[in-house]
């Protein structure tokens, strides 16, 4: 059990260096190249990475602005794409909370910004281990881990952005495909529940069907129509079968 907060902070940072930072880095390397292609200066790429800190949302924003979507529609789509953070934060926060001596609530609201797919998944798993049972140590561990993840994402995004101008065309294309490919493998490779598979198929089908007619609305349609269809399919399936 780790009681020294600084040691927990360093432990978190050290455990992020390696596979988590490398996988995130690859995704953000591609993001940087796509951002450069979309006309973002480096500071906007960094701003998006720090302010949004959700690669799918950052891509939705980029795609919808390129498609000429209205700002309200873009915000709605980005907001919906981030819904996964709600159950994540909901389940993570009680693990960081000390029974008696409570931290002020605004600190929790700040630390919640660090929640991402990677940081959440590792934290939930690691907080079961005996060395991270103290909520104070967990808090520090989570900050250390997240800081390294965000830092490596930012560095890789800038590298991707600068690389894209220096590479020959074929390598450029490879770099640009990195992030979509990463999400494709994550989504299709990790989809195990029936509702997840149904949502994948319905979402992709609706987005492609709407793409020609209403490019600015196809992602919202994919989420709302495809997602609801998948939800209803799954419900009726569960009831009858």
């Amino acid at each position: 059990m780790i009681a020294d907060p600084r040691r927990a902070l360093v432990l978190g940072a050290r455990e992020a260096l390696g596979v988590p930072a490398a996988v995130l880095g690859a995704g953000f390397l591609g993001y940087g190249s796509l951002a450069a292609d979309a006309g973002y200066p480096v500071y906007l790429t960094l701003l998006a990475t720090f302010a949004i800190w959700a690669l799918p949302g950052q891509l939705v924003l980029m795609e919808m602005q390129a498609a000429g979507a209205a700002l309200a529609a873009t915000l709605l789509a980005v907001w919906l794409s981030a819904a996964r953070f709600f159950p994540m934060t909901l389940t993570l926060m009680p693990l960081l909370r000390r029974g008696g001596r409570a931290r002020s609530w605004w600190r929790f609201l700040l630390v919640a910004q660090l929640v991402s797919m990677t940081t959440w998944a590792v934290a939930i798993r690691r907080f079961e281990d005996s060395d991270l049972q103290d909520p104070g140590s967990r808090w520090q561990y989570f900050i250390g881990f997240s800081a390294v993840c965000i830092g490596s994402a930012a560095v890789c995004a800038v590298i991707g952005q600068l690389l894209i101008g220096a590479l020959p065309p074929l390598a450029k294309y490879g770099l640009a495909l990195l992030t979509p490919l990463y999400f494709f493998v994550t989504l299709v490779g990790e989809a195990r529940s029936k509702s997840a598979i149904a949502a994948l198929i319905c979402g992709a089908a609706v987005a492609l069907a709407l793409h020609e007619a209403a490019p600015g609305w196809s992602l919202l349609g994919a989420g709302l129509i495809g997602g609801s269809a998948a939800f209803l399919l799954q419900r009726s399936h569960a009831r009858h079968g």
């Binding site: 190249s33 796509l34 292609d37 979309a38 799918p56 891509l59 939705v60 795609e63 390129a66 498609a67 789509a77 919906l80 794409s81 981030a82 819904a83 996964r84 159950p87 894209i164 450029k172 294309y173 640009a176 979509p180 999400f183 494709f184 989504l187 509702s195 997840a196 149904a198 949502a199 994948l200 198929i201 319905c202 979402g203 992709a204 609706v206 987005a207 492609l208 793409h211 196809s218 992602l219 919202l220 349609g221 994919a222 989420g223 709302l224 495809g226 997602g227 609801s228 998948a230 939800f231 799954q234």
Partner: peptide
């Protein structure tokens, strides 16, 4: 979560099948 999942699936399908830019 179905809506969020379908939206991201739609995003990736669109980037792979009908991309813009590079």
């Amino acid at each position: 979560s179905c809506v969020a999942y379908a939206l991201v699936a739609g995003l990736i399908a669109r980037i792979i099948v009908a991309p813009s830019g590079l």
